[in-house]
Lab assay of single mutants.
Amino acid sequence: VPQRAWTVEQLRSEQLPKKDIIKFLQEHGSDSFLAEHKLLGNIKNVAKTANKDHLVTAYNHLFETKRFK
Rank of each mutant, 00 (worst) to 15 (best):
V1Y: 14
V1T: 10
P2K: 04
P2H: 07
P2F: 04
Q3A: 09
Q3W: 05
Q3L: 09
R4F: 09
R4P: 15
R4E: 09
R4W: 10
R4Q: 08
R4A: 06
A5M: 15
A5I: 15
A5V: 14
A5W: 15
W6F: 05
W6E: 05
W6P: 08
W6Y: 06
W6K: 04
W6N: 05
W6L: 05
T7R: 02
T7G: 05
V8L: 10
V8Q: 13
V8W: 06
V8I: 11
V8P: 15
V8S: 11
V8R: 03
V8E: 15
E9H: 03
E9S: 04
E9G: 03
E9L: 04
E9W: 03
Q10S: 03
Q10K: 03
Q10Y: 06
Q10G: 03
Q10A: 05
Q10E: 12
L11C: 03
L11Y: 02
L11G: 01
L11I: 06
L11W: 02
R12A: 12
R12N: 11
R12I: 10
R12H: 13
S13I: 03
S13E: 05
S13V: 02
Q15K: 14
Q15H: 09
Q15G: 11
L16R: 04
L16F: 10
P17N: 10
P17T: 10
P17H: 14
K18E: 10
K18Y: 04
K19W: 10
K19L: 11
D20Q: 10
D20F: 07
D20N: 09
D20Y: 07
I21Q: 01
I21A: 01
I21H: 01
I21V: 07
I22R: 00
I22C: 02
I22Q: 01
I22G: 00
I22F: 03
K23T: 10
K23S: 12
K23A: 12
K23G: 07
L25T: 00
L25H: 00
L25M: 07
L25K: 00
L25P: 00
Q26T: 05
Q26V: 06
Q26R: 11
E27V: 07
E27C: 09
H28G: 02
H28P: 00
H28I: 07
H28F: 14
H28W: 15
G29A: 12
G29F: 01
G29I: 01
G29L: 02
G29H: 01
S30G: 05
S30I: 05
S30P: 03
S30D: 11
S30F: 02
S30L: 06
S30M: 07
D31M: 13
S32A: 11
S32H: 07
F33A: 00
F33G: 00
F33C: 01
F33M: 02
L34E: 00
L34F: 01
L34P: 00
L34W: 01
L34Q: 04
L34A: 02
L34S: 01
A35P: 01
A35I: 12
A35K: 12
E36A: 08
E36G: 08
E36F: 10
E36M: 11
E36T: 07
H37R: 10
H37M: 13
H37P: 00
H37L: 08
K38P: 01
K38M: 14
K38Y: 12
K38C: 15
K38R: 12
K38H: 13
L39F: 03
L39V: 04
L39S: 00
L40Q: 10
L40R: 10
L40F: 10
L40P: 01
L40M: 12
L40I: 12
L40G: 08
G41P: 04
G41F: 03
G41T: 04
G41R: 07
N42F: 11
N42D: 14
N42Q: 12
I43N: 06
I43Q: 06
I43W: 13
I43C: 09
I43K: 06
I43A: 09
K44A: 14
K44W: 14
K44Y: 15
K44N: 15
N45Q: 13
N45H: 14
N45F: 15
N45A: 14
V46K: 05
V46G: 03
V46Q: 04
V46R: 06
V46E: 03
V46P: 02
A47N: 07
A47P: 03
A47Q: 13
K48Q: 14
T49W: 15
T49C: 14
T49G: 09
T49H: 11
T49P: 02
A50P: 04
A50Y: 07
A50W: 07
A50E: 06
A50T: 13
N51R: 07
N51F: 07
N51M: 08
N51E: 13
K52Y: 11
K52I: 07
K52V: 06
D53M: 07
D53H: 07
D53Q: 07
D53L: 06
D53W: 07
H54D: 15
H54Y: 06
L55N: 00
L55V: 08
L55T: 02
L55I: 07
V56P: 00
V56C: 06
T57M: 13
T57P: 02
T57N: 11
A58L: 05
A58V: 05
A58H: 02
Y59A: 02
Y59L: 03
Y59W: 03
H61R: 13
H61W: 08
H61I: 10
H61Q: 12
L62I: 04
L62A: 01
L62Y: 02
F63S: 01
F63M: 03
E64I: 08
E64S: 08
E64H: 07
E64K: 08
E64Y: 11
T65N: 10
T65I: 04
T65G: 11
T65A: 12
T65W: 11
K66M: 11
K66R: 12
K66P: 03
K66E: 08
K66T: 06
R67Q: 11
R67F: 05
R67K: 10
R67D: 09
R67Y: 05
R67A: 12
F68W: 06
F68M: 03
K69C: 07
K69I: 06
K69E: 04
K69F: 05
